[in-house]
Design a protein around this nucleic acid. Structure first.
Length: 376
RNA sequence: GGGGGGAUUCCCGAGUGGCCAAAGGGGGCAGACUGUAAAUCUGUUGUCUAUGACUUCGAUGGUCCGAAUCCAUCUCCCCCCA
């Protein structure tokens, strides 16, 4: 399964096989919530953008177009024309992001659909059934992502419930496989660590879920209100209890700097809406720092977004052109910017992997960190 | 030639005596965004020696303690009739 190739400090260079291809880690997964990268990016584009893994969402695809529709059309890979690995998030994040629209019980979560208010029930079994219909490469366990800061007692209660849900997820996935009710019979399952910002709950939770010998382990419930320092602290606390021979996924993180720092703490996989969402808002990442292409100073700037970048956007277009496209509200502005940012993130991961391979991750980290978070 | 309607801050447009440097929208300028309810949201947008002062509502003059708002004249624009 997961093969650890090399380490430098706590940073890990590895790879793992899936039925949809091998994943080289550390890796960034490109978020395609509704089976598309927002901003007009298709799966074939992702190949050119050096994407290894696409991430889709169980809750969103269940509502639209419906997981049974996707199953009947041959599964998510065929549906969106992406042959590489797909990880499906379980709907656990929507317990957080749609908190005004849901009610949690031991059984699961009742949502009022954010589209039309229709009542939706999703518990561990439902989430696994939906993900089975989608046929993703990696299914995520159904969890509750708790907002920070959180109450200790509630966090303990919730994290324990998430463990119980994890057992139910595993049982349900086993059943679906045994009864052949699944599009991808090799579907993998990752468990998710919760516990807000409480060391003891986090560690206790990690120990419990590690016992299940799942295909991978995620840290969830971070970057949801706490400081970066608190986030790094929790990763440091939990990491020693994560199985060494399994991929480790830090969910929803983060900024380029967050990713570099988290790799240094032993994380293998990431995902984040930041490269795509920020790009749609004209915010692009470069090796010199962050730029807002809407700024007036780009009106006559004939340079590409990043002179060092060889993405499809930077090879062809100037800052001035994209600035104009944003001003004119041309959708090409978003597409070009999203392409650049995804290429940037995927290239960041490639550079991290190369650096660990060559044993100079620390130097890379130091140099890259200097400018990457700066606003220019 | 006759009758009617207008002119408001970058633009459109509300306001018809004090609570008006003037609603709202657009545009401009900037910011936020971390398992996507986000092509979204927020701030700001007359000047300054700035908890106050000054200039501004087509122009000029007037009434009033006080005028974007009332009166007179003028300029320009639009519509209708000849």
């Amino acid at each position: 399964m997961y093969k650890l190739i090399k380490t430098q400090g706590r940073a890990r260079r590895g790879r793992f096989k899936t039925v949809h291809g091998e994943v080289q880690t550390p890796a960034f997964m490109n978020v395609a919530t509704s089976a598309a990268i927002k901003g007009g990016i298709s799966a074939p584009d992702l190949v050119e953008l050096r994407c290894q893994v696409a991430l889709c969402n169980t809750y969103h695809l269940h509502l639209r177009p419906g997981d049974e529709v996707i199953r009947d059309l041959g599964g998510l890979h065929k549906f969106m024309s992406w042959n590489g690995p797909i990880l499906t998030d379980s709907g656990g994040f929507q317990v957080f992001s749609l908190s005004p629209l849901r009610k949690i019980s031991e059984e699961g979560v009742h949502f009022a659909s954010h589209i039309d208010g229709r009542r939706i029930f999703m518990g561990p079994e439902e989430s696994m059934q939906i993900q089975a219909n989608l046929g993703s490469t990696i299914a995520m366990a159904f969890d509750e992502c708790i907002a920070n800061p959180a109450e200790y007692d509630y966090t303990k209660q919730s994290a324990d419930r998430t463990v119980r849900w994890l057992y139910r997820c595993k049982d349900e996935l086993d059943r679906l496989k045994a009864e052949n009710l699944i599009v991808n019979k090799d579907q993998m399952l990752f468990g998710i660590n919760q516990g807000a910002t409480f060391d003891d709950i986090r560690i206790d939770n990690m120990k419990k879920i590690a016992e299940l010998n799942l295909d991978g382990y995620a840290i969830g419930g971070l970057a949801v209100g706490e400081s970066a320092e608190e986030m790094y602290h929790i990763i440091q606390q939990v990491e020693p209890f994560m199985p060494v021979n399994k991929p480790r996924y830090l969910m929803g993180v983060g900024t380029p700097l967050n990713i570099i720092n988290s790799v240094a703490l032993g994380i293998d996989m990431f995902d984040c809406v930041m490269p795509s969402r920020n790009a749609r808002h004209a915010h692009v990442f470069t090796w010199e720092g962050k730029r807002n292409l809407m700024n007036a100073k780009y009106e006559r700037d004939s340079l590409p977004i990043d002179p060092e970048c060889s993405c499809p956007t930077c090879k062809n277009f100037s800052r001035a052109y994209i600035h104009h496209l944003f001003k004119a509200q041309e959708m090409l502005a978003m597409r070009l910017s999203v392409m650049h940012n995804l290429y940037f993130y995927n290239t960041l991961m490639k550079k991290i992997r190369d650096a660990i391979d060559e044993g100079n991750f620390d130097e890379f980290r130091e140099i890259a960190s200097e400018n990457i978070d700066k606003r220019i």
